[in-house]
Design a protein around this nucleic acid. Structure first.
Lengths: 333, 333
DNA sequence: GTATCAAATCGAAACGCTTCGACGAGCTAT
DNA sequence: ATAGCTCGTCGAAGCGTTTCGATTTGATAC
């Protein structure tokens, strides 16, 4: 193994000089810097991470708690993970993979051992049992998602309430008077996933404000459930003309079933949804949608966490404002 | 931060004694061991990972290269990751998340810096460009999947050829004389994903051996592609009675489309597939299938990698034999 | 011509652990 | 009784960095 010592000898300088060339923490003459860098390349030197961590008291690793067994919407989860890893590398951090399933204590274990300098937690629920423990972690922690009790925590999330309001507004502005929400599967609400509840709240708030009936449905993703749900949503007495869908997994079956019923989107029914952009784009009928900006959220989480590693910051909640993309799946009446 | 020194003082022993209690590498009297363990708990001691890595020259971390952007079959990927992380923890290893997208060099970077002791590579393709680089990594490497040129590499995979043969055999044994393969999307074959090619080879081998016509189809996962594919597969002159499906994403649409055409499974058409068990179980019609044993494969990869960290092993290919579960979607004719 | 200061470099002390060799104490076998 | 074990413990030498003075050199200010 090539060590800094050998680089120093090869370049004819002291060990500390090599270190300062690498870190840039003290000024080094151009000439010396060049020589050292050449030696590094010539010898193929790679600094030893353990020694670095020990001496500097920083591992340059972020612990990421991921729900690996969460059945639904894996693609979104992966998108988050992907953007977090990429952003972390931009800041010269690596990512240690921790699983939600391994239980709490993982965050504590890796920070106490100095394996990670900070923690990012994904898939945080309303009454997340991990939250109390996370408060006691002696390292920056950022949650993706917002628990009910977020006192003193750093959270990053999409503003789902605003998304709910915005989707209702979009349809109402186009003259729709009877708008239905096809929400997430019952299991999601039961689990207390805060984003589902927040979107629902926004939906109800905006329909109420505009004096519209609010027909709210929760629906599993399988074909039969979707079909049954549509039976209900489309009961003639409702006069439903606009659909707000917050159920990524059901979108495919939903459009299929509408086609089977010979209902054209948007001529017969306007549909707007919240899901990743590529999903909305790739459907049989591209849908006007609000994207889950997984890339931005992941990058933001990394930025918050690294920021807090450099200097103190007060806890902060950052809700990204939803962005609506019109793909023509809503019509004016 | 509590160090081993403080534990030693608290327990009234030397530093090395504490270390030996922790590692068990030398015999320690029961009495002393007890005292040390109590001190560890009393003080809340956690060994510093960097110091450990530095002194022992082992990070107890496995680098895992994951295809995070690979659009298709995320759930299987996650299942692999999940089982790898869990198994790694069983051996007291942590997992550093590296992405396929970050390019080659990642394996080299983390091992050269001693951030990871070994590497597991997921989603290996037939002519994987990463393979040459992986050969030069100075640490145990295990591939999940089998590249064409696997000289000197450790690989773990399902025996897809055998799976192909077995599925044909299953149908042929039940009297089916015209069997069609609905394979993966064209993109998968073009990418040179070795498993798709190997299953195809097994399929053709077994049909040839039994003197059956081999009708082979590649099919994208969207509804229209599936429908078109079925048009072809079910052309009357083929007399197709058995379907081997190797296309997880298309299964839903496929069954839906069969239902639309009023074709009953298995009365009118026998269907057998290769996909994760929970997918096969959760479909509208549960399907007789060969599972992708992601958990076993992941665990096996970890076992191989840790084994190679303890002592030298020659390179090895381990192909798991497929396991067929009968769910009654194939009939005797 | 001397005092001051910044730039460039070095030496050495940490950082917290593992592990090797040594050693005393208590055995067993002779 | 003595040599030769094994058991339990300790001290100290690393492991490869970072970082804090200290030192040297040359320039700038008076």
């Amino acid at each position: 193994m090539i060590t800094i010592k050998e680089v120093a000898r090869h370049a004819g300088v002291s060990i500390s000089t090599v270190s300062y060339v690498l870190s840039g923490k003290r000024s080094i003459s151009e000439e010396t810097k060049r020589r050292v860098e050449q030696s590094i390349i010539a010898l193929g030197y790679h600094p030893n991470a353990g020694a670095r961590a020990l001496a500097s008291n920083r591992s340059r690793v972020i612990g990421l708690i991921v729900p690996l067994r969460s059945d639904h919407n894996m693609p979104v989860i992966m998108q988050f993970v992907s953007s977090i890893v990429a952003s972390a590398r931009d800041y010269d951090y690596d990512v240690l993979l921790l699983t939600k399933e391994a239980g709490p204590g993982e965050a504590h274990r890796v920070t106490a051992r100095s394996m990670a300098d900070a923690i990012i937690v994904m898939d945080v629920e309303s009454a997340d049992p991990r939250v109390p423990e996370l408060r006691t972690v002696d390292a920056p922690v950022v949650l993706l998602g917002m628990p009910d009790d977020h006192q003193g925590l750093n959270c990053v999330d999409l503003d789902f309430a605003s998304a709910g309001r915005q989707m209702v507004g979009h349809l109402a502005d186009r003259g729709h008077r009877s708008i239905a929400l096809i929400g997430s599967p019952p299991a999601v609400y039961e689990r207390g996933t805060s984003y589902a509840a927040r979107l629902l709240a926004g939906f109800q708030q905006e329909t109420a404000k505009r004096n519209l009936p609010a027909s709210v449905h929760s629906c599993a993703a399988d074909y039969d459930a979707v079909s049954a749900c549509l039976d209900d949503v489309l009961r003639p007495e409702r006069g439903t003309t606009g659909l707000v869908v917050h159920n990524e997994a059901a979108l495919g079956s939903l459009l299929l079933e509408l086609r089977r019923r010979s209902l054209k989107v948007p001529a017969d029914l306007s549909v707007i949804t919240l899901c990743p952009d590529d999903v909305a784009r790739g459907l049989a009928v591209p849908l006007t949608s609000i994207a889950v900006p997984a890339d931005e959220l992941g990058a933001l989480a990394v930025e918050m966490v690294t920021g807090r590693l450099e200097r103190e910051h007060p806890p902060e909640i950052r809700l990204l404002q939803p962005q609506l993309t019109d793909r023509g799946s809503t019509s004016t009446r």
